[in-house]
Design a protein around this nucleic acid. Structure first.
Lengths: 132, 132
DNA sequence: GTCCGATATTAGACTTAGTATCACCTGGTG
DNA sequence: CACCAGGTGATACTAAGTCTAATATCGGAC
């Protein structure tokens, strides 16, 4: 797991035990956890980890481009280890967030909006997960 | 302004002075105010209005289909009097939210997503307002 | 009009997400 | 060794939102 350290260094982040523990969890996760969810999980392995450090660490990771924040849930920001462009589907029953690949949807017209210099966009879809 | 009362009644909402005051503000507004912003504004006309009533009233309006909530800002839900489908543009400098007409963008592929029963969707665009 | 149950309103306590403060603790440098 | 930068942790604080319990008001039955 020492490639985590490499990843941190490559992003200009000094590796510490706490940061490594947070990174191991948050970079591998397939859900979209909030800061407090990250704290709860990582604390099981590293019980001295403080809430402030988790918030500091996650915000640092965002600054350094390791994570992105997404505003998808009421009441909390979630963190997403996928920093490339993609869309999101939100299950209206469970609140679960699913990634939707960029190529799965096509959006046209964004460049033509007058008065708006669009830097990025994504589609937010809501509905129900079926099958699977 | 008594057509506000008609609008409330038509949506099955008992008209009270507080609800009328909130409705007058929030149904006419062009911005996307948070509950506390609504409180602050409406309180100027109706100083006895309590915070709890504003929250109750706005949530009631949402239940009854007069408003929609939108999760577009960190830390707060905003209320939108436009209940028909449209997209949103967020100015990354100011945080201001702009409506983008439904017809201005075309999204294809949403119906074809396997495993997802899409009920609604919208495009969230971020960038800078230019010109006016 | 009066009474009464149902519904609204209010102030304030409470909860939760997130930030700020500050003391302490490292690890590298002169 | 002394020092300084940066990281960590406990705790205080702020802000969004909900809950509660007491009071006020509405609307219908008489």
């Amino acid at each position: 797991m020492s490639d985590i350290i490499q990843v941190l260094r490559r992003h200009g982040i000094q590796a510490t035990p706490q940061r490594i523990a947070v990174a191991e969890y948050v970079l591998a996760v397939r859900t979209h956890p909030s800061a407090d969810e990250v704290w709860e999980q990582v604390r099981r392995r590293c019980p001295t980890l403080s809430r402030a450090t988790v918030y500091n660490t996650l915000n640092l990771f965002v600054d350094k481009g390791l994570l992105k924040t997404q505003v998808l849930k009421e009441g909390t920001v979630v963190f997403d280890p996928r920093v490339d462009a993609h869309h999101h589907f939100i299950d209206v029953d469970t609140g679960k967030i699913y990634d939707v690949p960029w190529q799965a949807l096509k959006v046209s017209g964004a460049k033509a909006l007058r008065g708006f210099d669009v830097r990025e966009y994504q589609v937010i879809l809501r509905g129900r997960r079926v099958g699977k």
